[in-house]
């Protein structure tokens, strides 16, 4: 009898389990797993003007892309972008978290001010950066400010030399995302046991660099790794600010050719030129690059979570 009851309970549990996971499982299957398989088949096909794989050509799409100068340039562009934005975001968000954590007055005010850009979209921020803040004409805000010091207006976005557009692209993302990472660092800082600092001050270490170097930073290791990873993966998928500040598809539109990241290139390849085979192949190459960089980061800084 107990055995029968147990198997009945098992069956009702099994039924409930599948009933509860099936909507999510079905959705993830249709909108993530199927596209991966479909995309892989597309990437092996000559799929011009069609979303259907079938005209298989082996790995020629991959070979074409890896010898396509514009695509290779886009990979270099995104690596350069990541090299700027990732350490900068890390340093600024950690710096702000340290300042806000210790400030005596107006703590929640500062937290709100730094965090509120998270509510703004990349499109709106790009619009402000492009048309107002870094407008190349004298009425641009930054040009107005440097004008007060007698400096002539600078064409921030339109010229390849000097490449001021990097300043525009990096600061817009910095402004948008730094608050989010500051919040994560603040949470990390609050988990550090006070006793560690007390012990350090008994040992004669005043507040300052040594305490930061030998207590704060090591204690923040898990947090730091997760901030770096989230930031890195997001940076490699940059699209919005490049598309809206420099311009979208085709070299003739705007300043897109100055710095075209992989996603903007793939967008024009697949959606404008309707070459879905190469568009899909490019997605896999970019995924491989992201995996490689993530693993490299893991080798250098660890993946976090295991210590403590």
């Amino acid at each position: 009898m107990p055995i029968l009851q147990k198997s009945q309970a098992d069956r009702s549990a099994t039924f409930a389990f599948w009933a509860f996971v099936s909507p999510a499982l079905l959705g993830l299957t249709v909108f993530t797993l199927v596209p991966i398989v479909w995309g892989f088949l597309l990437s092996l096909s000559h799929a011009q003007n069609t979303i259907h794989p079938g005209h298989f050509i082996g790995f020629r799409n991959y070979a074409d892309l890896l010898t396509d100068e514009a695509f290779l340039k886009s990979l270099v562009t995104i690596v350069v972008f990541a090299v700027f934005i990732v350490p900068l975001t890390f340093a600024v968000s950690l710096g702000l978290a340290l300042l806000v954590n210790k400030v005596g007055w107006g703590r929640s005010f500062f937290r709100t001010v730094f965090f509120i850009p998270s509510a703004v979209s990349y499109v709106v921020a790009s619009l402000i950066w492009k048309v107002s803040l870094f407008n190349g004409l004298p009425f641009g805000f930054v040009n107005h400010l440097i004008g007060l010091f007698g400096v002539h207006p600078v064409a921030w976005i339109g010229t390849a030399h000097p490449p001021w557009y990097w300043l525009v692209l990096v600061t817009v993302r910095l402004w948008l995302q730094v608050g989010f990472f500051m919040i994560i660092f603040l949470a990390g800082l609050q988990e550090i046991p006070k006793s560690l600092y007390e012990a350090a001050s008994v040992d004669g270490a005043g507040p300052g660099w040594p305490v930061f170097r030998y207590i704060t930073l090591p204690q923040l290791k898990a947090t730091s790794v997760s901030v770096l990873l989230l930031n890195l993966i997001a940076a490699f998928q940059a699209f919005d600010e490049f598309y809206n500040i420099l311009g979208g598809s085709g070299a003739s539109i705007g300043n897109a050719s100055l710095a075209r990241p992989p996603l903007v290139y793939l967008y024009s390849l697949a959606l404008s030129n309707q070459d879905f085979g190469r568009g899909a192949a490019g997605g896999f190459i970019l995924t491989a690059l992201i995996f490689a960089v993530t693993l490299l980061q893991g080798r250098i800084f660890g993946f976090g979570g295991s210590e403590k």
């Binding site: 995309g39 490699f236 697949a270 997605g283």
Partner: peptide, 21 residues
Amino acid sequence: FLILATLMIPGAVTFVPTFAV
């Protein structure tokens, strides 16, 4: 495990095949 595996896939990277689907 299956759900964790989809977590690893960078979303914006699959936009071309997702568009096809």
